[in-house]
Simulated scan of single mutants.
Amino acid sequence: MSGSTGDRLVADFYDYESLLTGEERKILVTAREFLQAEVAPLVTEYWARGEFPRELIGRFRELGFAALAYEGYGEPRPAATNLLTGMLAMEYSRVDASVATFLGVHSGLAMYSVYFGGDQEQRDRWLPAMASMDLIGAFALTEPLDGSDVAGGMQTTARREGATWILDGAKKWIGNATFADMVVVLARDVDDDEVKGFVVPKDAAGMDVVKIENKVALRIVENAEITLTGVRVPESDRLQNIGSFRDVAEILRATRGGVAWQALGVMVGAYELALAYAKQRQQFGRPIAGFQLVQDLLVRSLGNITASWGMLVRLAGLQDSGVVEDEHSALAKAFVTARMREVVAWGREIFGGNGIVLDNDIARFFADAEAIYSFEGTREMNTLIVGKAITGESAFV
C-alpha cells in the first residue's frame, strides 16, 4: 500500500504533518518506510491466520520507538510530544490496526501503568527492559462480565497475606497476553474495596492464559482470557501509586487519545486504498474515479479525515500543555471512531464486490474498525463522560 505523493500522505489534505519539527518528521518517515517495507507485506497472511507476526518484535526493538514518550528510558532524547506519538499511532494503523494495537498496549497501557503507577524503584526495574522491548507488556482490566461497568463491578480480587497478595478472578480481551512477559493486572482489594495494580510475570503459578479464537476484527492481535487462581504476588510487585480506580482512569485518559489516533489511521488507510482503486478500476470505458457518486464518497471520506485530524492535533496540544481533561479525550474517541466507521464503509462500497475479498485489504480495514469503535470505552460511555462535563448532570446508571 502506498499512500504518499511527493513528500506528503495523499490523505493529509491540510498538511498537518508540517506541524512536526524536522527531527520529529524524520522519526515519522523512518516508521513509515519500515512499515511499508516490512509490515505491510505480512499483515494479510497473519490476519487470515489469526496470529501475531512475532518476528517483527525484534525489528521494532531495533527502531527504538517504544519509549519515545518516556524521558529517561530508551534512547537519550527528550520525551516525544503527544503530536508525534499520535502521528506514529496513525502511521501504524494506516498499515495495520492490529500492529498499532500491539504497540499501544505495550508502549501505552502497560508501560504507562508502570511509569505512572510504579514508584521509582519499580520504574527503574521494569521500564528499561520494556523500552528495549526485551520485556513485552499486557494490561488486564476488562473482565468476562464487566466491560463498561468495570469501575464498580470488578470481580477480580486481591487479598493481602503479610508481604504477599493473592489474586483470584478472570480477565478478558487482554491484548498481547498470549506472548507477554508481564501482565499489569487490576484487582479489587477485599479490605478497602479499592482497585490496586499488580505486575504478574507470564509464568506465575495459577495464571492461565487462553487465546480467544474466531474473531472477525483485529485478528492479528492475540487477545486472551486470563484466569487467576490463587496467584501470589509479592508486595514489591504491587504498583505503589495505583490505589483506586481514579488512578486507573488516569491511565485510560492518557491512552484513550491514542486510540482516536489509531481510528484516524484506519480512515487514512481505507481512503488511500479506495482512492487508488477508483483511479485504476475501469467501468463503462473509464475509471470509476470519474463518476460523481464515487467522487462524493471520496470527498466525504477526506472531510471526515481532515476534521478528525484537526481535532486530534488540538487534543495533542492540550495534552502537551498539561490541561487535558477526561472529556477532551472522550469526545475525540467517540467522534473519530464514528467517522472511521463511515469512511471504511464508503471505502468498501467503492470496491464493490471486490471489497469483501481479503486480498484487496479494504476488507481488513472494514472489519478492524469495529473493534476500535468499541474498545477503550464505547461511543455511548464516552458520550456520557462528555455529557456530564457540558451539563453538570450525570446520566450514568
Rank of each mutant, 00 (worst) to 15 (best):
R123M: 03
S374Y: 02
I390R: 05
R219F: 02
G147H: 14
M111S: 09
P201H: 01
V266Y: 01
T44K: 06
L28N: 02
D296C: 13
A110L: 08
D191L: 05
G310K: 11
A371G: 07
T337F: 00
S113N: 09
G258A: 14
M381I: 15
L228C: 11
F116D: 14
R341P: 01
T44D: 04
A330N: 10
M267Y: 12
T164P: 02
Y92I: 13
E222M: 00
G108E: 09
A11G: 04
W261H: 00
H328K: 02
R8E: 07
K279E: 11
M1P: 12
I27D: 04
E225R: 11
T44S: 08
N214P: 04
S301Q: 01
E272V: 15
R256H: 05
T337R: 05
G265V: 10
M267H: 07
G322M: 04
Y70C: 12
N304M: 12
Y46G: 09
E325M: 10
A249L: 10
Q36K: 13
Y46A: 08
G152Y: 12
G269T: 09
R281Y: 08
P287N: 02
G137M: 01
T142Y: 10
E62S: 10
A140R: 13
G392Y: 02
A89M: 15
Y271K: 00
E161A: 15
L56A: 10
A249Y: 01
A177P: 03
G118D: 10
P144L: 13
T81H: 13
N304S: 14
A363L: 11
F351A: 03
E33T: 09
E45D: 15
D96R: 07
L315H: 01
A367F: 07
P128I: 12
G387E: 06
A334N: 05
S132G: 14
F179Y: 14
G197Q: 03
R32M: 08
S132A: 15
T383L: 15
E194Q: 13
R125F: 00
T30P: 03
I251Y: 02
V210P: 03
Y112V: 14
D359N: 12
V105D: 10
R123K: 01
R188N: 06
A31F: 02
R61A: 11
D12Q: 07
D359K: 12
N360T: 15
G392M: 00
A278N: 08
V233L: 07
M340Q: 06
R59E: 13
R54F: 01
M1C: 10
D189V: 02
L273W: 06
L218I: 05
E33F: 01
E250P: 00
E71A: 13
S236W: 10
V185R: 03
G387T: 10
S244T: 06
E38H: 06
M130P: 10
P78G: 05
R281H: 05
E17N: 04
R77D: 07
L88H: 03
A79K: 14
V43Q: 14
E143G: 15
A367E: 14
V336G: 02
E235D: 12
W173F: 06
G353H: 12
A11T: 15
D181I: 05
A170P: 09
L384W: 00
F52E: 01
V323W: 05
V268P: 00
G74V: 11
A40Y: 11
G58L: 09
D361K: 08
I136V: 08
D208M: 07
V210H: 02
R219D: 00
L312I: 08
V221Y: 03
